[in-house]
Design a protein around this nucleic acid. Structure first.
Length: 497
RNA sequence: GGCGCUAUCGUCUAGGGGUUAGGACAGAUGGUUCUCAGCCAUCAGACCGGGGUUCGAAUCCCCGUAGCGCUACCA
């Protein structure tokens, strides 16, 4: 997948661990990396960090790739699997050991954990006390002779580690607060910080763009780069995405996976746009932006330092903006899966089908009120068959309410209306509105007394598109049947109590 | 506890020594209308606190405070 024409630009990567779905925070990190790469004619690399074999699984890899693809974030290289590089990572660690920059640690995990817990219980922090750093060669041999296994720890040097974060500016850590981190576990497997640095070096990553939660890993990694003889890349740490309680967005806040938003009717363009605006803005007030506009305007230095609350209402607003822009055919295409799974689609509605044009008009009529694509199956149902629910509240308000004269009166109006509709020639919006108003006038009644019950009879709801538009879309014959049917049910005493 | 990061309307943000502190979402009111949505008009709504520097601080500095993140032989 390597694209040689892109060589020369910055190289960035998105490196998720495949332990679940693609989180919206991950999606946003991927998006910013992608935007950065595209804006600078760089290379966007996808790397799966699956070194924790226990928690990693194939299904997660699939759902992550699926999520990225859905968001429209195409990668130039990869996906690479970190686990494939284990031997190289191990070799690097051994090299550090040979150079005296890392040392074997024979301390029992249980003992270390116990001491850590004890320190925490007293409210303090505990860092590995370098017991094994002080071991002589003879002592190491003695322990190996006893069959003790050892982890390999990085010997953190003295000093201060600083970098100029692209988002946060100058940032630094006193090395004294950094523990001698484990590079190789007792079983010889490499840990995250080692693998990450090793891979970033191997993949010639020039810019690391990741979440704020990695800030404290950064000094460790910079130290590793230097120990390995490499210049560290530039770092940019993105603010976290928060829930409404300002805590890091998690499952208890509701939907957090990218595919979940897809499944609940969000358009990828809207999601991408929304995510881009979380922690960044073009600075000129624009909000609804195409992918190309985002690429052109994106500037990593303009990214905010503050965590941003994920506001679903704003996402829905953006989604609605995108839905409104979709012309008939495109609207059908995006709504299709949702209509399909609701069992509403038949061959006559598909491209080339007999009722295709009619159905496109239905969708066009519904779209003004749609905020999510899942609104379409719900709202299209009354147009596609007689099996549509009558909302009890709508019935109470417009079919049986005393102020409309009660069920019997409403039934009489519906029957009169049905007769008028049946007689209509031609049958269109203007003619039906004229007929209805004429009917109301002849009875000295308000037109609204006919219009609202008509909508409820035709759609089952009190809200929706223009009642006359609905009437025409339902069709003359079917509309007459519905008006009479609901009148009959009213006469039979339904909808009351 | 330690270390780090952060702080402008409820939310996303613009601004960055002198502004009526701007916009968007959400909210409220009125108008359009057969309802809802939309659209139009309007309203309400913020610089965490305290010290400095300065003629002047939301903006620069310091100190608090609060929130969040990290604190693994997870990634």
């Amino acid at each position: 997948m390597t694209n040689p024409t892109r060589s020369g630009g910055p190289r960035v990567r998105f490196a998720p661990s495949p332990t679940g779905f693609l989180h919206v925070g991950g999606g946003r990190t991927a998006l910013f990396n992608w935007l950065y790469a595209r804006a600078r004619k760089g290379t966007f690399i996808l790397r799966i960090e699956d070194t924790d074999l226990q928690r990693s699984n194939e299904a997660s890899v699939r759902t992550i790739l699926e999520g990225l693809t859905w968001l429209g974030l195409d990668w130039d290289e990869g996906p690479f699997f970190q686990s494939r590089g284990v031997e190289e990572h191990r070799a690097l660690a051994r090299r550090l050991e040979a150079e005296g920059k890392a040392y074997p640690c024979f301390c029992a995990i249980e003992e270390i954990e116990a001491r850590r817990r004890a320190a925490e219980a007293q409210g303090g922090a505990w860092r590995y006390d370098r017991t094994c750093l002080r071991l002589t060669a003879a002592e190491r041999e003695e322990r190996r002779g006893r069959g003790l296994t050892s982890a390999l720890r990085f010997r953190v040097p003295e000093g201060v580690t600083a970098w100029d974060d692209r988002v946060h500016g100058p940032t630094s850590f006193d090395n004294g607060v950094i523990e001698d981190l484990v590079l190789l576990r007792s079983d010889g497997s490499p840990t995250y910080n080692l693998s990450c640095v090793a891979d970033d070096v191997a993949m010639k990553v020039t810019d690391v763009i990741r979440g704020d939660d990695h800030i404290s890993n950064t000094p460790k990694q910079i130290l590793l780069y230097r120990a390995l003889g490499h210049e560290p890349p530039s770092f940019a740490h993105l603010p976290l995405i928060l829930g409404s309680d300002k805590k890091r967005l998690s499952k208890r806040h509701g939907a957090v996976s990218v595919t979940e938003y897809r499944d609940t009717g969000i358009l990828p363009a809207a999601m991408r746009n929304f995510l881009a605006l979380l922690g960044w803005s073009p600075g000129d007030g624009r909000e609804v932006m195409t992918r190309e506009e985002l690429v052109a305007a994106f500037d990593i230095a303009a990214v905010n330092r503050k965590g941003a609350v994920f506001d679903e209402q704003k996402l829905e607003w953006l989604n609605s903006e995108y839905i409104q822009k979709l012309p008939g055919e495109a609207l059908y295409d995006v709504a299709q899966p949702y209509l399909e799974s609701a069992g509403l689609l038949g061959p006559e509605l598909a491209a080339g089908g007999a009722r295709r044009d009619w159905f496109l008009r239905v969708l066009e009529t519904l779209k003004a009120r749609s905020r999510r694509l899942t609104d379409f199956p719900r709202d299209a149902k009354p147009f596609l068959g007689e099996d549509y629910p009558i909302d009890p509240q709508a019935a109470a308000k417009y079919l049986t309410a005393e102020k409309s004269g009660g069920a019997k009166q409403v039934a009489a109006r519906l029957r009169a209306l049905a007769a008028a509709v049946a007689a209509l020639r031609p049958f269109d919006e203007a003619a039906s509105e004229a007929a209805l108003r004429e009917l109301a006038t002849s009875k000295k009644e308000a037109a609204a007394l006919y219009i609202h019950p008509m909508r409820v009879a035709l759609l089952g709801t009190a809200v929706g598109p223009s009642a006359f538009a609905v009437l025409v879309l339902i069709g003359q014959k079917r509309a007459v049947e519905r008006l009479n049917r609901i009148a009959g049910r009213l006469e039979a005493g339904e909808f009351t109590g």
